[in-house]
Design a protein around this nucleic acid. Structure first.
Lengths: 177, 177
DNA sequence: ATATTTTGTTAAGCATATCTAACAAATGTT
DNA sequence: AACATTTGTTAGATATGCTTAACAAAATAT
């Protein structure tokens, strides 16, 4: 019953919640932290979309059990919702850190790249990345040497056979630092 | 004139081509390499979707100048299409390699994760990742030590303040290797 | 308590991408 | 040449998510 590799490309759409829905949940989370409450309008402002759109999406999130509503229509995350937000934020955090600290992207670039990717990565990937970053930021002597070497490194493609893309017109060939 | 940070989350949808369209182009590329030609049916089989769906998408790709059609309705990539395929494949290659070699994911996991992410990463990110991987795979003594250290490393969360997610119930706290 | 503003919902429209079914055009078979 | 199959297109359906416009309900102001 393994994965049909032909359909790997479809995994992109087969997320439990869409990118948009997840950002509705993240918005609720932010607003709760920031202001102590979260209404539909607030989400609309936070995401810069219309109230009606939020209304529809929040209804779905309520039906799916990610969001609960107050007597006064104030929104809260259910346990399920909180767990999801948590897992996404953890991945965002670590991916952003990776882009900044390891790949040396600017804070803004790192934020944008992380936002696109955060919710798509699996839990195992997130955890492995955390381990890697834990080591990378540990300050151990071997790591310090590695990082100095990385800073000084300038890659020149030597036409390995490991990468199919190289057969075309690969990045490797044009890569300046 | 800069980016409105409020709209960062929308960048996910603001790709030149959708994930689906890109995979149509990748399919054409694969089929050309594998069989020397590419028709609509072949794409339909390759992507495991209906002919009608392919027909619609290919028409759009033709109109947008990514795909050209033979007198015999055989499909080819334009220069524009080839460049796009190229950039995506390069990123796929490097991201997959990163997941396998650095994060130690299985080949299958690496393929799935890379497929979800490949087309979303910017060119600068791709290039930076190539530099990193070039160094990581260089075999230099300092790198060898680093990699041994990484294998032996077991991260334990020390509750830093760097990560917002930690305020909740972060992965860091539950991370076993 | 009446009037105004804010908030939330619903309806209708647009765009994407998928499907099935029906049909046309091209290929292949006998 | 006539029939059968394959291929490509079109039409109608579903589902997502966004929009604006109209309306109802709730909160605020006078």
């Amino acid at each position: 019953m393994g994965i049909i590799m032909k359909d790997v490309w479809k995994k992109f759409e087969q997320t439990e919640l869409t990118h948009s829905s997840i950002h509705h949940l993240l918005a609720i989370n932010s607003l709760l932290k920031e202001h102590g409450y979260s209404r539909s309008v607030d989400i609309a402002h936070h995401l810069n979309i219309s109230r009606s759109s939020v209304s529809v999406t929040v209804t779905k999130l309520r039906d799916k059990g990610f969001v609960r509503e107050d007597k006064n229509r104030f929104l809260n995350l259910s346990k399920k919702g909180e767990e999801l937000v948590n897992s996404v934020l953890s991945k965002r955090c670590i991916v952003e850190q990776f882009f900044r600290e390891v790949l040396d992207l600017s804070s803004q670039e790192a934020e944008i790249e992380a936002c696109k990717v955060e919710h798509l990565l699996s839990e195992p990937t997130g955890k492995k990345l955390i381990t890697f970053m834990g080591y990378f930021l540990s300050g151990q002597p071997d790591v310090v040497k590695f990082r100095k070497g990385l800073e000084a490194f300038n890659y020149v493609c030597t036409s390995t056979k490991e990468c199919d893309a190289c057969e075309l017109d690969c990045f490797f060939k044009h890569n300046g630092r």
